[in-house]
Computed example of a mutant assay.
Amino acid sequence: MATQARRRKRDDSADAAVPRATVAQKDWLRRGLDQPGGKLPLFDRDGQRMHPGTVRACMQRGWAEPWFDNPLKPDWLVCKLTDAGRRIVSQG
């Protein structure tokens, strides 16, 4: 019984090491799957600018990366989906 508890604790800690995407992050990343080059949208489904925290969190986890600078709006991040981002949204 103690062995099972230790194994379960070890499995739980391994899962904790893998960052999990929020619903908003997954939704944003999924939208890049069908776009040329994996371009991620600047706006959400309601036409509002994507929350910068969502964009930055995905970039920090390696799910998105900067694509190019936007000369008209230099404070906006134009990003594309990475292979790690594709894996996150395809995990179901």
Rank of each mutant, 00 (worst) to 15 (best):
A5W: 01
V18H: 05
M1F: 04
D75G: 04
V89R: 06
M1R: 03
A17C: 00
L72S: 13
L77M: 12
D15T: 02
P36H: 12
A14H: 02
R86C: 04
R10E: 12
A16M: 10
G92R: 14
N70D: 15
W28Y: 13
Q60R: 15
A24K: 11
W63K: 01
L42R: 11
D44M: 09
G47M: 08
K39I: 10
F43W: 09
D34V: 02
P36F: 11
R30F: 01
P52N: 07
L40R: 02
A24R: 13
P41M: 05
R61P: 00
A17R: 12
R7G: 00
E65S: 03
G85C: 01
T54V: 15
Q25P: 07
P19H: 05
P66Y: 01
A24N: 11
R31F: 05
M50E: 15
L77S: 11
A24Q: 13
A17F: 00
Q91E: 15
G92M: 04
C58I: 02
A2Y: 00
V89N: 06
V78W: 14
D15S: 05
M1W: 02
W63G: 04
D11Q: 13
D12E: 15
F68W: 12
W28S: 05
P52G: 03
D46E: 15
A21P: 01
A2V: 05
V23C: 07
P19Q: 08
R61W: 03
W63A: 05
K26S: 13
V23F: 11
D83V: 08
T54D: 08
A16E: 14
Q4N: 09
D69W: 10
R49T: 13
G38C: 06
Q35D: 12
W76S: 07
